[in-house]
Computed example of a mutant assay.
Amino acid sequence: MNDPLIIAIDGPSGTGKSSVSKTVATRLGISYLDTGAMYRALAWSCVASAIDLDDSAAVSAHAQTFDLRMGMDPAAPSVGVGDRRIDREIREDAVTSVVSRVATNLDVRANMKQRQRDLIAEGCAATGGCVAEGRDITTVVAPDAAVRILMTASEDARMQRRSRQLRVATEATRSQIVDRDRTDSTVSQFTTAADGVVTIDTSDIDFAQSVDAVLHVVKEATDDLSTTAG
């Protein structure tokens, strides 16, 4: 029996990692996990429960118990808390503007790390593999993944992509990208590839080329594993 294929993809906002990860998972017929959505879901749940985001102990306690449900079909990924789907709500400014206050809580990160590992295992059991994307997947959550990739892009390219996605002026996206990256980088390293992590710069390549670049890395890694096993 082959080992499950775990593909860990990290990178800052605007590099295309979410869209690329979903497409790669679809092409390979395996599960997909958006770990950033998990932090967004917690931020939404804290706000909905009137928990003070500056009360780190209260946020951490809530993280231990809130009923997070992640749908891992790359063609239709979903996020819910309890029976409520919150896919749209977690992308709204009310969550985007506060998610870093949750994501930089070290106790929260420890809890999420275990949840993410459990979900990756569930995805692998269901489909034989999982593409997990976020900010510390290659280094903390799944450092032993068969494929580890850091997706990067220039600041200008990232802001232009995000502005097109949100249909707002490029400059209006600066705080969402630059400021959040600066805050999140205090607890995770997602701007420089760790040892053994392959860097893919998407600044000057389009979406299809980005997908092909990831699939090329996957093929090389799996070919190497097959050769080693043989």
Rank of each mutant, 00 (worst) to 15 (best):
K113L: 13
G134K: 01
C124A: 15
G82T: 00
Q209L: 09
T104H: 08
Q165H: 10
T192G: 11
D67C: 07
A76K: 12
T186H: 13
V168P: 02
M112N: 06
S100K: 05
A169E: 14
I205N: 01
V79T: 10
F190G: 01
A194W: 08
S185N: 13
A208Y: 12
Q114L: 15
S188Y: 11
Q116R: 06
I177A: 08
T96I: 10
V131W: 04
I86A: 00
E171T: 07
D73I: 02
S185H: 13
D73Y: 07
T183A: 15
E89K: 06
D93F: 03
V141R: 07
F66D: 03
T199H: 09
L106A: 14
V95E: 02
D179A: 15
R85K: 12
E92P: 02
L150R: 02
T173S: 10
I137D: 02
D206S: 06
V168W: 06
A194M: 13
D212E: 11
I205T: 06
G134S: 02
V197M: 04
E171C: 02
L106G: 11
A169S: 13
A126L: 09
R88D: 14
G134M: 04
R148D: 04
T202A: 05
T170M: 13
Q176H: 12
S188Q: 12
E92Y: 03
N111F: 12
A153P: 01
A75T: 14
R182P: 09
R158W: 05
D195C: 09
T192N: 14
I177R: 03
V98C: 04
D204T: 10
D107N: 13
R167K: 14
V102Q: 09
D201K: 05
E155H: 05
G80E: 02
V141F: 03
D204F: 07
M72C: 07
R164C: 11
A126K: 08
I177H: 01
T104G: 06
M112P: 02
Q176R: 12
R158H: 06
S188W: 09
E122K: 15
R117S: 13
T104E: 07
D181S: 06
D181I: 03
T202N: 03
T96M: 03
R135P: 01
T152V: 11
R117V: 10
Q209P: 05
G71V: 01
P77D: 00
